[in-house]
Amino acid sequence: MPEGHSVHRIARQFERNFVGRQVQASSPQGRFAAGAAELSGRVPTKAQAVGKQMFLEFDGQVWLRVHLGLYGAWDFAGEILVDPTIASANGRMGQTNQRGTDLGGADDAPVFDDAGENSLTSIGAPRKTRVHVRMSEQTKGLDEADGLEAADAEWPPPVVGQVRLRLMTDVTCADLRGPTACVVETPEQIDAVIARLGPDPLVGDPAENEERFVAAVRRRNVAIGLLLMDQSVVSGIGNVYRAEMLYRARLDPHTPGKAIPEEIVRELWHDWDRLLRIGVETGQMMTMDGLEGEAWRKAMAHRDDRHWVYHRAGLPCRVCGTEIVLEEMAARKLYWCPGCQR
């Protein structure tokens, strides 16, 4: 399931490429035909992510709410302006957030994943589009605007697979597949949804967010491994960030929230803030500190080289050598080290 950093990146793509531009909406799959008809011809005025949900406001006080869930993803095609605050411009944003990314650097050499794919051009479903990427002023061969350019493209792009919703401007297309939620809602309904969500470090007042998180954790006699996955306690954390944050804090996942010292809970919050910002910037859930040069590039290209415990069941802990444990907690996989986290 895409975690919070991916959804923030998607919202930034919409902010940069769709907000202020009239869109045509359709539902090639047919399951969102009524909603698409209500959106078509309107102008998006705001794009916002809170945790794992994205909210796209349109003129006329109409909102689109999307929760990608386990299988959802957005595909972008056409001319795509890249948000300058993020270091890579994945074509497909959602499930593919674990693929390699372009780190720039002196030679602007892309980092490829195990399968030899680069997320800058491998955007999921096959397309009749040749995409060029410009990530910095040093990149050669493109014009002055940071972004993606489609050459020799078929327009509009062919519909591939089960597309729940297609949003199109004159030059940019976004296709949504497999979401858990894709609904048109009123401002009041959107407010109610956001009110039920826990704090997101990138949304709202930082001090207030921290206090909400600390209070929510310390009043509960529930395992911290469950609390971090509870979207009413904190927004955006999924399986990967949960395992990694608990390891970084050297916390036993089974420790009740109310038994954790306040200073440790506050450190958890600040660590989530740091990791989320790194994820938004790089497009990867990088959770190991102190990596440089080739070690950093290797970690960005391979999931198993950028995590402390996630996906490492049966392997020795990178610090103490204890075998990493895999167990189920509330029907979700939990990775942790019994040696370091006790």
Score class of each variant (00 low, 15 high):
262 E>N: 11
180 T>P: 03
105 G>D: 06
325 V>D: 08
88 S>Y: 03
67 H>F: 13
20 G>W: 05
324 I>L: 12
186 T>I: 07
149 E>I: 14
203 V>T: 06
340 C>L: 06
93 M>G: 01
263 E>Y: 07
245 M>P: 03
143 D>C: 12
109 A>D: 12
266 R>Y: 05
3 E>Y: 05
79 E>H: 11
161 G>K: 08
210 E>C: 14
187 P>C: 07
37 A>D: 13
131 V>T: 10
284 Q>L: 07
306 R>G: 08
148 L>R: 15
31 R>D: 13
14 F>A: 06
2 P>R: 11
225 G>W: 01
82 V>S: 08
91 G>V: 09
129 T>W: 06
184 V>N: 02
336 W>N: 04
59 D>V: 00
184 V>Q: 00
76 F>H: 06
50 V>D: 01
138 Q>M: 05
320 C>W: 01
227 L>W: 04
221 N>K: 15
118 N>E: 13
311 H>C: 04
85 T>K: 14
49 A>I: 00
13 Q>H: 14
225 G>M: 09
138 Q>A: 14
235 S>D: 03
294 E>M: 04
75 D>W: 04
185 E>W: 05
42 R>D: 08
270 H>T: 10
46 K>W: 02
200 D>T: 06
168 M>G: 01
288 M>A: 10
25 A>R: 03
20 G>N: 07
93 M>I: 15
61 Q>H: 05
106 A>I: 09
270 H>M: 14
324 I>S: 04
312 R>G: 06
95 Q>P: 06
229 M>H: 04
84 P>E: 05
135 M>N: 14
96 T>S: 11
300 M>P: 03
256 P>Q: 09
289 D>W: 08
66 V>A: 04
212 R>T: 03
37 A>S: 15
212 R>P: 03
187 P>I: 10
269 W>K: 13
80 I>S: 02
105 G>S: 05
